[in-house]
Structure formats: structure tokens, C-alpha cells
């Protein structure tokens, strides 16, 4: 039973990973203008903005406390088994066929990675970034 569930999950994750590059190339919108700085954290003021965006605007569907709504929960427990790379791609490019929109107009890839790291650690309180 556990093995079956694990196998299904792996298939689902592969599907997620496969969807992201396809929509990346679809040309549905402009490519992100924000430069990608792989290792640099966003500046403190930008960090606060991103956490506020996460709480308020991601929160419209995922809940202000990220416990889920029309979109799934984004708590550390809920995200534990999902690869950070595909989570960041989901933020930037959205998920075709679901209500998850692309956020690349507002969030760069590097910022998406930073947000994912915060979500995985459950450190998403904007008042103490």
C-alpha cells in the first residue's frame, strides 16, 4: 500500500516537473525581466513584500495561514514530499488546467526559490523575516 502510494506520488511529481518546462516555452507572456540571482536572497524590504504577497494574495486561494482553500495547503507538512524546483516553477509559470496562475509578472525565479525555502521551513511570517 505504501509502495503504491509512493509510486503514484512519484508519477504525479514527474507530471508536475514535465508540465513546467512545457508552459515555460509556450510564450504565453513576456519572459521575466527580473535578473536571476541564484544565490542572493532578496533585500530585506523585498522579503517583506514577498511574504506579504504570499500571505495576502497567494492566501486568496491557499488561505492566509496557508492551510489551503480552493488551492492546496502550503504548510511544511503538505509540501514536504515535493521537490523545491517544481514548486518554484509552479509559482513562476502556474499550472495549466488548474486555477494556479503564473506569477512571473510579480515574482522572479530567484524570489520564487526564496519563497519556497521559506514555505518549506514554515518561516512565512512577514513581521519577522
Amino acid at each position: 500500500m505504501i509502495a503504491v502510494r509512493h509510486a503514484v506520488l512519484c508519477v504525479a511529481l514527474v507530471a508536475v516537473a514535465a508540465v513546467a518546462p512545457v508552459s515555460r516555452g509556450s510564450g504565453a507572456g513576456p519572459t521575466p525581466a527580473v535578473p536571476v540571482a541564484a544565490d542572493a536572497d532578496p533585500a530585506p524590504a523585498r522579503q517583506r513584500e514577498l511574504l506579504e504577497l504570499l500571505k495576502q494574495d497567494c492566501g486568496s486561494c491557499h488561505g492566509m495561514r496557508l492551510t489551503g482553500g480552493l488551492g492546496p495547503a502550503l504548510t511544511p507538512e503538505a509540501l514536504r514530499t515535493k521537490p523545491a524546483e517544481s514548486l518554484a516553477a509552479t509559482i513562476v509559470y502556474g499550472r495549466t488546467g488548474t486555477a494556479m496562475p503564473p506569477w512571473r509578472r510579480f515574482v522572479s525565479e530567484a524570489e520564487a526559490h526564496w519563497l519556497v525555502a521559506r514555505m518549506l521551513n514554515g518561516a512565512t511570517d512577514a513581521t519577522s523575516p
Binding site: D57, S60, C61, P102, W103
Partner: peptide, 8 residues
């Protein structure tokens, strides 16, 4: 094509 929907 629809615009991205950021709030229902």
C-alpha cells in the same frame, strides 16, 4: 487566451 486570474 484568458489573463491569469489572481483572485476568484
Amino acid at each position: 487566451e484568458k489573463l491569469p486570474v489572481y483572485k476568484m
